[in-house]
Design a protein around this nucleic acid. Structure first.
Length: 363
DNA sequence: GACATTCTAGCTATCTCGGG
DNA sequence: CCCGAGATAGCTAGAATGTC
């Protein structure tokens, strides 16, 4: 199957569907975030391995020195002569920026009947959805809360939260208000639509008949712009060194020796300014659709189990582990090798070597 | 091979600034 | 003055590397 990108592209920022998937694993942000990056690299590596003429020029984690003398660790480097790492002609850098979960405040409540409010509204909404969370009962290990919402389109609901558990208040792209079950085990099913606002209520602890709630905001990757600057600098520094030009349009592409490709996932976090930066300075920017990343995580979960799967998501494992190579290859096949979606032309592309140069080609 | 150290890259807290 | 968005600064898990 080929993912129709119309189902994912929007003209506003939203919280990626991949977030729903990885939330189910209940891992720490750092831990799972790194693995998303690694999965993106594995898929990219899988594409390269399917092309023997690309693979034979490949060096992974190469240290490249730019015009400025700065060193850049680039995930995938292509040399005409890979043995001696001579004559660089291509580089691929992968970047992902996940959902940021920031604590907004901590609230302590003592008696049944006490409550706090959470507001879910955005610039685009003409109304505001107010959610009131009222304490019904406090036991030694759990708290019963009543949620009512001003939109009136959901009946008041009672939840029982154990210490450490959370519920998520969500406004989807059709302005539906949804509250997940405590410690939601399958957010993909519970929240089928695209999420525009997500706030988390977590029961932090219970002591002396009072309970403490932590409130979190979920924000779609505000630091994409920093990643954009970082990737752009690497592209420029290498371009100046190899082709002696600053700008990607300073030479016709057939006269350039080197191509820099940037692969991103969770593309819905990349705002216009971030996209403008990378498309100004980087030759090609390719998006891996959320649906492919989600499918890959599900596949790893099925094969390795949710406990052990993270161990298998790493590049160093890929080179020696033929089963892992097969898993990745099958994932790519499942999407008819339509993995990279070109940000600028809006079509799926594949990597090729043409006239000793790294190129992309529409498929 | 076990343990320590360093490094990378993604996550999060804080600061700043502008609009209401 | 408050709030929220954008920008910056700082933090940390896991991988890579070094040391014994």
């Amino acid at each position: 199957m080929i993912i129709n990108m119309e189902t994912e592209l929007r003209d506003y920022l939203y919280i990626t569907n991949l977030y729903k998937c990885i939330t189910n694993y209940h891992r720490q942000g750092h831990q799972i975030g790194r693995k998303i990056g690694d999965m993106l690299e594995l898929l990219t590596l899988g594409v390269i391995y399917k092309k023997p003429d690309l693979k034979k020029h490949l060096i992974t984690e190469g240290k490249l020195t730019g015009y400025s003398s700065a060193n850049h660790n680039v995930e995938f480097c292509f040399f005409q002569n890979p043995k001696d790492e001579e004559n660089l002609f291509g580089a691929i850098e992968c970047k992902c920026v996940g959902v940021e979960t920031t604590k907004s405040k901590s609230i302590t409540l003592k008696n049944p009947g006490e409550f706090f409010n959470i507001n879910l509204s955005g610039k685009w909404t003409s109304f505001s959805t107010n959610v009131a969370c009222t304490i019904k009962d406090i036991s030694t290990t759990s708290v019963e809360i009543l949620l009512t919402n001003s939109a009136g389109d959901a009946v008041p609901t009672i939840y029982s939260l154990s210490v450490g558990q959370n519920i998520k208040l969500i406004l989807d792209e059709h302005n539906n208000f949804i509250c997940t079950t405590p410690n939601c085990e399958d957010m993909l099913t519970e929240v089928p639509q695209i999420i525009r606002i997500c706030k988390i209520i977590e029961l932090s602890k219970i002591s002396n008949n009072s309970c403490i709630f932590n409130l979190y905001n979920c924000i779609p990757g505000p630091q994409t712009i920093e990643k954009a600057k970082q990737a752009s600098l690497v592209a420029i520094d290498l371009r100046k060194k190899i082709d002696n030009i600053w700008n990607k349009t300073d030479l016709p592409s057939e006269q350039k020796k080197m191509t820099f490709i940037h692969v991103i996932c969770e593309a819905s976090h990349w705002g216009n300014k971030s996209k403008d930066i990378i498309s100004t300075y980087i030759d090609y920017n390719l998006i891996v659709p959320d649906a492919i990343m989600i499918y890959a995580f599900k596949k790893f979960e099925n094969i390795y189990g949710s406990e052990k799967m993270l161990k298998h998501i790493k590049k160093s494992q890929f080179k020696k582990d033929f089963q892992l190579q097969k898993v990745i290859s099958n994932i790519l096949d499942h999407f008819d090798n339509h993995i990279f979606y070109d940000l600028e032309t809006g079509q799926y592309v594949t990597l090729t070597i043409t006239n000793n140069k790294l190129c992309i080609q529409p498929i």
